[in-house]
């Protein structure tokens, strides 16, 4: 099937392949790999755990989640009588990988009649993600419609229109100052009338502590539920991979007004590790579904737990990756 072929082609140009395009050198200078830790210690002692703690916290996993992970690790090390730091590394990587694994059903919406609302705080890359997602779905043969419900930020509609043009999909809405709820209503009506497979809704960035804006979002969510009850619903929160502990609060608060079905973790081509996704997964059980690794329309990929964990510990970045 041609669909699968395309999939394969895309996956090949993976996260690390992209990173290596010119960025690797600088990146390696900045990011210290975990391997030095594992090779620098001959036994599993307090210093060793302290070093692990540092790496996890430096990856933005956060104090609490780091504490939990290390506690679990210590228990396992004891139970399994692991003596070598290298064995310990395997345990650690495995446990985080397992936790971050995404259920394959998580991507069902790509093949169904669905409405995807993309939400998040300002500047995380919502519009760009919508554009990339539209390109991705269009390429896999879906009939896509984009709705520009960010009627607040200056020129947001223009930006999205450019993405729509690149992805070759139609767009509705986009006039500054319009009521976003009415844009959503119109978009749903249009999607039904045109027999669209996937309706992608771009929303305005809003800080999760702005009550009125969050209520606005709740209303938009309700309208979709009401007007399009048989559509598969996805609410994807876009989180900036460089964001620290606040991302957890964001996920929690956004989830309060519109039930979240997944995360798009953006800006993962920098030096940030996006470790807060681990904390979010363990506290709120929301999976990361996509990661953004660049500015091109093809730079949105399905989340891969292996690659994520490797990047977190920067292990397979080394030439002599030892998996």
């Amino acid at each position: 099937m041609s669909e699968e072929k395309q999939e394969e082609k895309k996956e090949k140009k993976g996260f690390f392949a992209r990173l290596k395009q010119g960025l690797t050198k600088t990146r390696d200078n900045i990011v210290r790999g975990i391997d030095s830790v594992f090779s620098g210690f001959s036994s599993i002692d307090d210093d060793f755990y302290e070093e692990l703690e540092e790496i996890l916290i430096m990856g933005d996993i956060g104090v609490n989640a780091t504490g939990d992970i290390l506690e679990r690790l210590k228990r396992e090390v004891k139970e399994k009588h692991v003596k070598e730091p290298s064995g310990c590394k395997q345990l650690l990587i495995e446990s985080i990988r397992e936790q971050m694994q995404v259920d394959t059903a998580a991507y069902d919406f790509e093949q169904e009649k669905s409405v995807i609302m993309v939400i998040g705080v300002n500047g995380v890359g919502k519009t760009t993600s919508v554009g990339k997602l539209a390109g991705r779905l269009k390429e896999s043969g879906r009939k896509v419609l984009i709705a520009a419900a960010d009627t607040f930020r200056a020129a947001a509609g223009d930006q999205l229109a450019e993405w729509a043009r690149r992805a070759e999909v139609p767009m509705v809405g986009g006039s500054e100052g319009a009521d976003p709820a009415s844009v959503v209503y119109d978009a749903v009506t249009a999607a039904k009338a045109r027999g669209v497979d996937v309706l992608l809704i771009d929303t305005a960035g809003r800080l999760h502590n702005k009550k009125n804006l969050m209520e606005e979002l709740r209303k938009m969510n309700r309208i979709i539920d009401r007007e399009f009850p048989d559509a598969h619903r996805e609410n994807l929160i876009v989180l900036d991979g460089t964001t620290g502990q606040n991302a957890l609060v964001q996920a929690r608060e956004f989830g309060e007004v519109a039930e979240l079905t997944g995360i798009i973790l953006t800006k993962m081509d920098g030096t940030a590790k996006g470790g807060i996704a681990v904390a979010i997964q363990s506290e709120l059980n929301i999976p990361v579904k996509y990661i953004g690794v660049g500015e091109g329309i093809e730079d949105l990929q399905r989340f891969d737990a292996d690659e994520f964990v490797n990047a977190l510990f920067d292990v397979s970045g080394e030439e002599d990756g030892d998996d």
Partner: peptide, 29 residues
């Protein structure tokens, strides 16, 4: 809201381009 990576960003910008000051955005969160 930047996390641990803020130091990398600031250091690289300062070393490569040179900065004179910082504006901290989204402080109303």
């Amino acid at each position: 809201m930047t996390g641990q990576d803020a130091v990398n960003v600031a250091k690289e910008f300062d070393e490569k381009v040179g900065i004179d000051g910082v504006v901290l955005s989204k402080m109303d969160g």
